[in-house]
Structure formats: structure tokens, C-alpha cells
């Protein structure tokens, strides 16, 4: 029930956002929100900490940029190509990473993602440190001009809602229940007859694909695939967003992405102090605020009811 109200609120806020905020900035936040939701599916529901999600986010951006710029793909097709790449990459990384557990899983994903980072830095088509520039926004279905930032905004918002919907359905399905069972007690899930590795891999692939969807969309918005999107610091940022908003909550990552995104934007004049501040928030969250904003709110509400 609460979720339904919150969802309607989010829709209204999203549809009216361009009236009171700069559309490009909101689009950026939407991409990060989708990215964080995809990440949360893995850590919040399956209990798997991936420290390499930047590879899917950044990798998809490069692929989308390349196929729309060099092969003349339409924007939608380009975004799908990017997300498809993230899906394949997710299957490969997931297959390798689930062979180790816990803390090793995090290290393996981080190291694998670093391969993508170096490829993005060294391959001939990626533009090295400058990133892949001059990606066309193009026309949606060959008809609707996306160079208009309002049209672009609603296109991005539609992608966000679809991605969010997929994650919501996944969490609230029998599949999602099994994921949570694995998070709570992996050996018990295994002894109940669930093929744990199969579930983990599928969760990893879905999460990677949607992270790729977010990165691909971002490349079209900014007409630019940035090397920083594939850097480990981006993987860290998405963890922070999810943690601040609330791990394992439906709307937490959205709230966290908006907060952290807005904060980084506001503080961008302070240079490296941004990093110090984000690091401090990280430490504070881990030490005393592990439920995150939405998690704490939920606790307050349920305490009042109980």
C-alpha cells in the first residue's frame, strides 16, 4: 500500500520535474537512480556486493556511443545494444565471480571491472582519456527529435520507469523471494533444493543489464561516454547512493541517488573536498546509519504501528 502511494508520488514528481528543475540535471539523476536500483537488486536483495558495476554502466555507454555514432543506430536501438552488451558482460563476470563468496566476490568483481576500464582507456575507438565524444542524440523511432531537451527528458523518464518496474517485479516475485532467502541463509536455501548459483547468476545478469541500460541512456543524454563512468570510483559512488537511501528498500536507491547526485553537483566547486565529504558520509553510514534514510523511516512507521 505505502509502496503504491510512493510510486504515484514518484511518477508525479518525475513528470513535473522539468517545470522546476534543469532537465539535463534531472536526467542525470534519473540515470544514477536506475543504476543504484539495479545495484540494490544485487546487494540489497541477493546480498552480493559487486564492486565492479561501473564496468556495466561505463561499458554500455561506450557501446551505445559507438553504434549510434559509427553505425547510425537509432537512439533506442543504440541503448538496447548497450544494455545487451552489459547483459553479456554481466553473464561472463557473474559466472566467474559467483565462484567465490563474500569478500572475495567483491574483490573479483572489482578486478574484473578494471579490465573494462583499461580497455576503455586503450582501445582505438574509445578516445582514451577524453572519452567517446560527439554521440548523436538522433531521432526516436526515426521520427521524434531528441535534441529537444524536454522530449529527451520524457524519453529518459520512460526508460527509468520501465527499468524501475522490472526491478520492482523481480523483487516481488517468487524469484525475488528466493534471492532474499539466499541472502539470509545461503546453506539453508541450498538444502531446500534451490540451485543457489543459478539464482545468483540470474540476479547478477539482470542487475548488470539494467546498470548498462542506465549507462547507455546517459551516453545519449550527454552525447558523451566518459572514462570516469567506467572507473572504480563510480562503482563506489553507486554503493554510497544505495547505502544512504537504504539497502534492500524499493525506493531507497532513488532517494540516495538524488541526494548524493545533488550533493556532488552543489559541492563541485570545492574540488577534492567532495571526495573527503563523500568518504565521510560513507564512514558515517556504515558506522551508525546502516538502514539508510528509507530503512529508518520504515522502522519508525512500523514501530508506530506495532
Amino acid at each position: 500500500m505505502t509502496n503504491r502511494i510512493l510510486f504515484v508520488l514518484m511518477l508525479v514528481a518525475g513528470l513535473t520535474a522539468p517545470l522546476f528543475a534543469y532537465p539535463v540535471f534531472v536526467m542525470d539523476l534519473l540515470c544514477f537512480a536506475l543504476f543504484a536500483c539495479a545495484f540494490n537488486l544485487l546487494l540489497g536483495y541477493a546480498g552480493l556486493l559487486s564492486f565492479g558495476h561501473a564496468a556495466f554502466f561505463g561499458g554500455a555507454a561506450y557501446i551505445t556511443g559507438y553504434v549510434t555514432k559509427e553505425w547510425g543506430f537509432t537512439p533506442l536501438l543504440g541503448i538496447l545494444a548497450g544494455a545487451g552488451f552489459a547483459m553479456v558482460l554481466g553473464a561472463a563476470f557473474g559466472f566467474l565471480a559467483i565462484r567465490r563468496q563474500g569478500i572475495y566476490f567483491a574483490m573479483v568483481t572489482l578486478a574484473l571491472a578494471q579490465i573494462i576500464y583499461f580497455l576503455a582507456l586503450q582501445m582505438p575507438f574509445t578516445g582514451g582519456e577524453n572519452g567517446l565524444q560527439g554521440i548523436p542524440r538522433g531521432h526516436l523511432f526515426g521520427l521524434i527529435d531528441l535534441n529537444n531537451s524536454l522530449t529527451m527528458y520524457y524519453f529518459v523518464f520512460a526508460i527509468f520507469v520501465i527499468g524501475f518496474g522490472i526491478i520492482y517485479r523481480t523483487i516481488n516475485s517468487p524469484f525475488g523471494e528466493v534471492l532474499q532467502a539466499i541472502r539470509e541463509n545461503e546453506s539453508r536455501a541450498l538444502s531446500l533444493g534451490y540451485d543457489v548459483d543459478h539464482f545468483k547468476l540470474l540476479a547478477f545478469v539482470i542487475s548488470a543489464t539494467l546498470a548498462g541500460l542506465a549507462g547507455a541512456t546517459k551516453a545519449i543524454i550527454f552525447q558523451f561516454a566518459a572514462l570516469t563512468s567506467a572507473h572504480w570510483q563510480t562503482s563506489g559512488e553507486v554503493i554510497l547512493m544505495t547505502l544512504v537511501g537504504g539497502l534492500g528498500t524499493v525506493f531507497g536507491p532513488v532517494v540516495g541517488a538524488i541526494l548524493v547526485g545533488a550533493l556532488s553537483h552543489e559541492l563541485s566547486a570545492f574540488g577534492s573536498w567532495v571526495q573527503v565529504i563523500l568518504g565521510t558520509i560513507f564512514v558515517v553510514c556504515v558506522m551508525v546509519f546502516r538502514r539508510g534514510i528509507i530503512g529508518e523511516l520504515q522502522r519508525l512507521v512500523s514501530r508506530k504501528q506495532g
Binding site: L49, W273, Q275, G279, F282, V283
Partner: peptide, 14 residues
Amino acid sequence: LLLTFGITLILQGL
């Protein structure tokens, strides 16, 4: 791991 990651960001940023 997350805590020490946060500490890394702080030290590096400083």
C-alpha cells in the same frame, strides 16, 4: 570493506 573504502576516499581526497 565499505568502511575502509570510505576511509580511502577521505585520505585520498585530503
